[in-house]
């Protein structure tokens, strides 16, 4: 579903601050894979996601989504294939617009937008139903601006928005890191449910080792822009935090990672 070949990205090339963020990286995701991505600060996790989404241009290498070469595509053209959730709950929604308007905009992801009415009555009924299934009480607040929601509610809404029009690949960029532990667990449970129910292919960057081990069917560890460790299936299911620390403690000098 997602194929990355020989991907390279260097920031500030030719200066004293030159930084090889992604260094000749290959990664293949099969349809339905839920892959967690872990690594210390500066390992290239967010850069990888930004390269897949087209927020950054690649220096070298190819990105294919569902067999289609998207390497040269702009960010807004790739949006047709990708759902994306950011770390900051404020990033995924338009605060001054209502819940139903945000949902309607998300449903049109990657499609042309015309002069037809933005939120129709039939769509509103569908949104109400989808929201009530999340159990956050948002179904009765369709016409309220998103700015009135809490961070956890906004992130849950963003999750629903990303899946209204199912993406080929769902990119999650530390999307629970900015939430309090309890809300983070709720949002994570919702994430897993949405991914499983819709058989989505997902790539989840996380700072939390426990989360990376617990969720998904495959885990990759990035170090200095390369894949240092790639584990899946039964082996991943039996993996423990202690084992990973014992093997890679030297490169995992990051407190938060083990938290």
């Amino acid at each position: 579903m997602l194929q990355i070949e020989g991907l390279r990205k260097t920031f500030n090339a030719g200066t004293a601050d030159e930084k090889r963020a992604i260094d000749d990286l290959d990664l293949h995701l099969a349809s339905g894979d839920f892959v967690t991505v872990i690594g210390s600060n500066g390992a290239g996790k967010s850069t990888l996601l930004n390269l897949i989404a087209g927020s950054y241009t690649t220096d070298q290498g190819e990105v294919h989504i569902d067999g289609e070469r998207v390497t040269g595509f702009s960010e807004c053209r790739r949006a047709a294939y990708l759902g994306r959730i950011f770390q900051d709950p404020l990033m995924g929604t338009a605060a001054s617009m209502t819940i139903e308007e945000n949902l309607a905009m998300a449903e049109l992801r990657g499609k042309p937008r015309g002069l037809t009415w933005g939120v129709t009555a039939s769509r509103r009924a569908a949104y109400r139903q989808r929201l009530s299934r999340m159990g956050l009480g948002l179904e009765s607040r369709l016409k309220q601006p998103v700015s009135l929601l809490s961070g956890g509610q906004r992130q849950s809404l963003t999750l629903l928005m990303a899946t209204l029009h199912l993406p080929k690949v769902l990119l999650l960029d530390e999307h629970t890191a900015a939430l309090d532990p309890k809300t983070a667990r709720t949002v994570m449970a919702l994430t897993e449910q949405i991914i499983t129910d819709n058989h989505l292919t997902a790539l989840m960057v996380t700072h939390n080792m426990r989360q990376a081990i617990h969720y998904g069917n495959r885990m990759i560890m990035l170090h200095e822009g390369r894949i240092q460790f790639d584990v899946s299936g039964q082996e991943k299911a039996e993996l423990t935090v202690q084992e990973v620390v014992a093997r890679f403690g030297g490169t995992l000098n990051d407190e938060a990672l083990l938290g």
Binding site: A80, M91, T93, A94, S96, A104, M105, K111, R113
Partner: peptide, 19 residues
Amino acid sequence: MAMRATGDNEQMIRSLGVN
């Protein structure tokens, strides 16, 4: 709505495919 979102949260509406 895409125009309003451009002024409100440019990154978000771009990731939804709006130029």
